[in-house]
Amino acid sequence: MFQNLMPLVESANAVSFEPVVFWITGSLSVLGAVGMLVSKKAVHSALWVALTMINLAILYVLQSAPFLGVTQVVVYTGAVMMLFLFVLMIVGVDASDSLIETIKGQRMLAIFAGLILVVSLVLLLSNSFYVQTNGLETADLEYGGNIQGIAALLFSKYVLIFELTSALLITAAVGAMVLAHKERAVPRKTQAQMAKELFSSGNYKGPLPSPGVYARHNSVDTPALLPDGSVSQISIPGPIIARGAAKTINQKDIDEVQSISEGRGIIDKEVEDQ
């Protein structure tokens, strides 16, 4: 086991395009993380995190972990981030952060502590490995491939943890159901009850009368006349009333409608004016 810790020769078929891919995907993943940090809206944050996770998947594949790369795409960008988006749909897409500090000076302190963390982690990790990269070629070939190698580990060395994982997953599923389930306080309304509620207490839900039908004009700003000659206010669209553009009906219009309906034709305006 300990011979693995010894510095060995660098793997023979080291890929030469690795630095190029690393710098592109690495900077994109940092961009995604920073975007998550600074986006005001939670939906934008979720999309930035998805970018980071896809780039991390590429980095996994680059580091000879194709199984983990595919799992990263399926589990993280496919399942976890979509779950985030679903919850954002419930909680409200425009749920954005308030910019008021609840603890005074907390933001400056947090940025300061974050900078210290970045600097110390970078200084520490940039000098962590002096050994040469062993590469996974021999480990992969032992069972015929990367997936077979991981499967051999999962079902032999880590089989107990694997079984515990199944218990964890079923507990999480049951827990989520218990938490998200809402007990009904009142029994569900039947369709008949809902229909009765909808049409009772004077809220008319049928089609509204068309404007201008019984009046002289048929434009939308002219109200319809009811059979008794009164004006139907609900026949004019709301925005027109709000703009104050609704036409009024006077007695002459009503007389004219009466004349048309009795077959006497339109009352000539000029004749009447004289």
């Binding site: 080291a14 940092v30 993380a33 920073v34 998550m36 940090l37 970045v118 970078v122 000098n127 962590s128």
Partner: peptide, 19 residues
């Protein structure tokens, strides 16, 4: 390519998450 670059990247992403 040195593995330290990957570790530094992971440290940067971790710090951004903590922030």
């Amino acid at each position: 390519m040195s593995p330290n670059a990957y570790l530094v990247l992971s440290g940067i992403i971790f710090s951004i998450g903590a922030l």
